[in-house]
Design a protein around this nucleic acid. Sequence first.
DNA 1: ATTCTCACCTGCGGGC
DNA 2: TGCCCGCAGGTGAGAA
Length: 271
Amino acid sequence: MPELPEVEVTRRSFESRIVGARIAAASLGKPLRWPLGCNPESLVGRRVLGVGRRGKYLLLRLDQGVLLLHLGMSGRLCFAPTLPAAGPHDHFELRTDAGQLRLHDPRRFGAVVWAPDDRAPVLDKLLGRLGMEPLSDDFSLAVFVAGLKASRAPIKQLLLAGKLVVGVGNIYASEALFLARIRPTTLARRIGPARAERLHAAIRSVLEQAVAAGGSTLRDFQAADGRSGHFQHSAHVYGREGAPCHTCSTPIAMVRQGQRSSFFCPVCQRP
DNA sequence: ATTCTCACCTGCGGGC
DNA sequence: TGCCCGCAGGTGAGAA
């Protein structure tokens, strides 16, 4: 579910409502990817200062410390004045004076991790090696081009790794590569300046469009206010194996790269 | 140092 | 109808 657009849409869907709230209770369900790193009781009384995002992590800034939330593959947040009783897949919850924030995550690849301050080692461990933010001014074309040249990997896998640019997951990597007319299996270092510039622009463009569309709801994504996304209807290649290319009508092809499916048009995206 | 594979976990859809 | 298999939006750990 959650690539950068879904995380950003989630962030926007509850930030203004939770800012200023004071935590009255915190509770955990089944274990997530990593331990919380503190006793949930210790969060009681903390005030929420803001909700940020770095890559696919949400950062709930508190008056003491920060909570990192990751949605994994199947996570979503809900925030409402009152939520129904917790179910078997609800694994983290904050009760505040502005409402309840809950992480629903059937597969439990998600995480909630507490860091006591900005220099906590866990922050460096989880965020320290992340690449550029594609929607920010620091998404430098020059750095991007240099990163392509320095890699020996296929471009799709370089994008997914998140060390050059963050937030591009399996859907948006396929979509950006289609827009840039680059085949996912192309070695990154063999992408010349013109195609690199197209890809740089395509990454930003597809992510912006997806945010504007409320993200992609493939099966069950919802923002914290319950709204679904509709970018999936705009996808040119993702999940469209065998369907006609929107540009040239050639059937969309699928290949496996590192246990992930990549979709592309064999004509529009020449090797 | 990179790159590649595996692992984590649950649910769902397709084929038999 | 029911079982088994493969696949699904991510990413760190360990091996090569």
